[in-house]
């Protein structure tokens, strides 16, 4: 089974404008694959990720994520589906400032239908230990943590619902080189352990060698984007 399947997808922000942002004829990502997607800013990377997450629907064409066609779901169903099956890591602001690490992770489970409250505390303990976050930092407000620590709590939040698909949108751009490397190796090894599909999006080509496959967005998006 493929994790992502796209057929004849077309997307534009305004119905009136003739200008499409995305036009993808045929593209798929295998289950368990760790894929590096690169492209210059403004090439439609974020739009593609929003469509995969079900936040936006294409005007035409088909999108299947983990075997389910997002086109056929209601908005509410897509919200639930996203909460349950997709973990998302942002460039920054991965966490809610006024909650501590544990509460941030719990919040992510709040929206997911597969949460088991009985084992949740142990699960959170486990994942934060794996991510090498000191126990003394678990209950501190996240804005008192370093950027590197925050990004690791971000991984924990994205992984807590044991999603089948992890999307990371430029997650390392605010980290220094050493932190970048350790972040990516931590993320990729965790995804490998759980057989989770990983889409890693960045414009930083130096990160490409951490991944076994990579793709340029322009090579699948058959569209010249006007500036």
């Amino acid at each position: 089974m493929n994790a992502i399947e796209i057929n004849n997808l077309e997307f534009s922000y305004s119905i009136k404008s003739e200008q499409n942002i995305l036009k993808i004829a045929d593209w798929s990502v295998k289950q368990g694959e760790q894929l590096f997607i690169h492209g210059p800013s403004g090439s439609g990377k974020s739009t593609l990720l929003n469509i995969i997450c079900g936040l936006q629907l294409p005007q035409s064409g088909e999108i299947k994520v983990l075997g389910e066609a997002l086109n056929n779901m209601s908005k509410r169903q897509r919200d639930k589906y996203r909460a349950a099956h997709i973990g998302y890591i942002f460039q920054q602001f991965n966490l809610i400032d006024y909650l501590n690490a544990i509460e941030n992770i719990k919040l992510a489970t709040h929206f997911s239908p597969n949460t088991k409250p009985s084992t949740l505390a142990a699960q959170i303990d486990n994942i934060l230990t794996t991510l090498k976050l000191d126990a003394k930092d678990w209950h501190r407000p996240v804005n008192q943590l370093s950027i590197g620590q925050q990004q690791r709590v971000g991984i924990a939040r994205a992984l807590i619902n044991q999603p089948k698909l992890i999307i990371a949108d430029e997650p390392t751009s605010s980290l220094d080189q050493v932190a970048k490397d350790s972040f990516i190796s931590l993320l990729t090894s965790l995804c490998e352990e759980n057989a989770t599909t990983l889409l890693f999006v960045s414009h930083d080509m130096s990160l490409q060698n951490h991944f076994n496959s990579s793709i340029a967005l322009n090579s699948i998006n058959h569209l010249k984007v006007k500036n």
Partner: peptide, 16 residues
């Protein structure tokens, strides 16, 4: 705005 974006991404509905 960032907080709202994040809440949406982890599955909160606009009504939430």
């Amino acid at each position: 705005q960032q907080e709202i974006k994040l809440l949406r991404m982890i599955g909160a509905s606009p009504f939430f």
